[in-house]
Simulated scan of single mutants.
Amino acid sequence: MNSKIEALGTSTGKILYSSDCQNIFDLSIAETMELFKSSGVILFRGFGVTPKQMKDFSERFSDRHIIDFTKVSIDSDKFVNFVDGGTDSLIPHSENSCFPFRPDVIWFCCTVPAEQEGETLFWDGVRVWEELSQESKELFLSKQLKFSYNKIPVERLKKILGSNANTIDDMKRILDSLDGVSYQFNDDKTVSVEYTCSAVVKNKYSHQNAFANHFWVYQKKTEEAIFDDGSRASDEVADEIETIFDKLTEKIPWQAGDLVMMDNSRFLHGRGAFNDNRRQVFTTLSNLKF
Rank of each mutant, 00 (worst) to 15 (best):
E34F: 02
P51H: 08
S148A: 13
G125A: 04
D88V: 11
R102W: 01
S94A: 15
L35D: 06
A238S: 14
N96L: 15
N287F: 00
G13R: 03
E95W: 01
E115D: 11
D179I: 08
T10F: 08
E240P: 07
P100V: 06
F82Y: 15
V191H: 00
F245M: 11
S192T: 13
V281S: 10
T12A: 12
R173H: 12
M171S: 00
S198H: 05
E224W: 09
F147A: 06
D276E: 09
S94V: 05
K221T: 12
S76N: 14
A30R: 14
A114L: 10
G118N: 05
C197G: 03
C98P: 04
Y149F: 15
Q280Y: 02
S97Q: 07
L288R: 07
N264Y: 01
M261K: 08
F267D: 02
V126W: 01
V200E: 02
I91S: 12
E135W: 00
S192F: 03
S286L: 07
D104I: 03
P253Y: 02
F274S: 05
T284A: 12
A199T: 00
E119W: 02
D84F: 03
D104T: 04
F47K: 04
K159R: 15
L161V: 06
S11Y: 00
L16G: 00
E117H: 08
S198M: 06
H207C: 13
V112K: 13
H214A: 15
N2C: 04
E155H: 11
N186S: 11
C110D: 05
F290R: 10
G125F: 08
S19M: 14
N213H: 05
E131V: 04
